[in-house]
């Protein structure tokens, strides 16, 4: 997936993954994709809810070896 930017939020506890995601997202253009790597389990539901409330699209997510990866398309 063509991510315009990759954000490393591994090892960060809530609320930092979202705080950083929001900041990184602000630097992207509409339609571009941000790839996020996180380890905080809470990021799963929070990023989904944050995307929905902000008008972004959570395109995909995976979980491998305790690392959660998300691809969010800026709305």
């Amino acid at each position: 997936m063509g991510a315009a930017k990759v954000l490393n939020a591994k090892g960060l506890a809530c609320p930092m993954p979202i705080v950083k995601t929001k900041k990184a997202m602000a630097e992207l253009e509409t339609g571009q994709i941000l790839e996020i790597h996180a380890t905080d389990k809470g990021a799963k539901s929070d990023l989904a809810a944050w995307s929905a409330s902000g008008g972004h699209e959570l395109v995909d997510s995976t979980e491998e070896n305790d690392v959660l990866k998300f691809w969010i398309k800026k709305g």
Binding site: C14, P15, I18, V19, K22, D46, A49, W50, S53
Partner: peptide
């Protein structure tokens, strides 16, 4: 029994 609630997700308060 006597708790009043307000639910606003933290990411809406950044």
């Amino acid at each position: 029994e006597n708790i009043t609630y307000l639910n606003i997700p933290y990411f809406d308060l950044l």
